[in-house]
Simulated assay, not measured.
Amino acid sequence: MSYFNEIYNDPELSARAKQVLVYLHDRANKDGESWYAIGTMAKDLSLSRSTIKRALELIRQGRVEKRARYRGNGGCTSNLCILLEVK
């Protein structure tokens, strides 16, 4: 089954989670890494920031790993999201 068929046919994923997962997949580099800020994702997907945060249920489900990223001065920047293979 293709990656997208797994996403579309997974009854445990909400519609917003599917949308965010496809977005992250589309924006990821060859290593499955994406670093788009919640605000950017919300704007690009025409969703609220709260909706994007709820869609990050993908982390609990083991589909995405989130790592904090920091600027040189120690300030927070966008998180790094890594797409994980579904087991």
Rank of each mutant, 00 (worst) to 15 (best):
30 K>V: 11
35 W>C: 11
51 T>A: 15
36 Y>P: 00
54 R>E: 14
22 V>F: 12
49 R>I: 05
6 E>D: 12
83 L>P: 01
61 Q>Y: 06
6 E>T: 12
34 S>V: 04
28 A>V: 02
87 K>Q: 09
84 L>N: 04
48 S>V: 07
38 I>E: 08
53 K>T: 15
59 I>G: 02
15 A>I: 14
45 L>H: 08
79 N>T: 05
76 C>V: 11
49 R>W: 00
61 Q>F: 06
80 L>N: 02
47 L>I: 11
71 R>G: 00
37 A>F: 04
4 F>H: 09
50 S>G: 12
11 P>I: 13
13 L>A: 09
36 Y>Q: 08
38 I>S: 10
60 R>I: 01
66 K>T: 03
7 I>S: 09
54 R>I: 03
40 T>V: 12
10 D>Y: 03
6 E>C: 06
76 C>H: 02
64 V>R: 03
2 S>M: 08
58 L>H: 05
24 L>P: 01
80 L>T: 02
53 K>Y: 10
51 T>S: 15
77 T>H: 00
31 D>C: 07
14 S>K: 13
86 V>M: 08
59 I>M: 03
16 R>H: 11
26 D>C: 07
47 L>H: 01
72 G>I: 05
71 R>K: 10
78 S>N: 10
76 C>P: 00
21 L>S: 07
10 D>L: 06
52 I>S: 05
43 K>Q: 10
73 N>G: 01
57 E>K: 11
81 C>K: 09
58 L>A: 09
28 A>R: 14
4 F>Q: 12
37 A>E: 06
77 T>G: 01
46 S>G: 06
81 C>E: 00
43 K>W: 01
68 A>S: 09
29 N>H: 07
4 F>I: 15
59 I>Q: 09
54 R>S: 13
42 A>N: 03
3 Y>W: 13
64 V>Q: 04
8 Y>Q: 11
74 G>S: 02
46 S>C: 05
36 Y>V: 09
52 I>R: 09
52 I>Q: 08
27 R>A: 11
67 R>L: 03
7 I>R: 06
81 C>T: 04
28 A>H: 02
67 R>T: 08
82 I>T: 15
19 Q>C: 12
8 Y>K: 13
41 M>G: 05
87 K>L: 06
83 L>T: 03
69 R>H: 00
13 L>W: 09
66 K>H: 00
22 V>Y: 05
